[in-house]
Amino acid sequence: MGPPKDRGEEWFIEIYLAHYERIVRYGLRRLYDGDVAAEVAQEVFVIAWRRRAEVPQDCLPWLYAVARRVLANNRRDGRAAPQVTLFADVIGGGGRTMVMAQDSLVAVAGVRAALATLPGIDQEILRLIGWEELSLGEAAAVLCCTRTTAAVRLHRARKRMAKALNAQLDREG
């Protein structure tokens, strides 16, 4: 039994054109290296072709899930990043900004620095929602968990992020 008949080169070209850039951006956000991000994206599509029989109709979360696996950079909480970026993330050199959130005014100092203090899974679900702009259901698909589990993880991640931001503000007086 081969792949579905509609999973030929035309289908592949279509998803490649539609999603290549997004997968590169996904890699760029986690590796801070455009060349490596492009290599990761190509590997993702190589896998997509090989496993085209398994690729769902709405394939973007599936592609992100493969990209996440290919990157495999979240076990050491940021050590995949180049040294300079790692430093910026940890020490807080990633920039400072003020953001008006939906339900409150949140003064944010070094959002990336706060993000870097969270457990890897918390960082990833926040990035999927915040940077990839996925819905909760799509993020659950990327993380290979149920929507309920993703909701719990997101809730915990938001709490920890708020705590990290507050702690950062407290430290800076």
């Binding site: 455009g34 959130a101 339900d103 990336r112 926040l126 915040g130 940077w131 938001r158 992020m161």
Partner: peptide, 24 residues
């Protein structure tokens, strides 16, 4: 913050924001 808050918070720090992705 809610989902929109997360997006606003993180968007300001998006490393890929404004980056032009060259063709494959």
């Amino acid at each position: 913050f809610g989902v929109k808050g997360i997006r606003m918070l993180l968007k300001a720090e998006d490393p890929a924001e404004g980056v032009i992705i060259p063709p494959a």
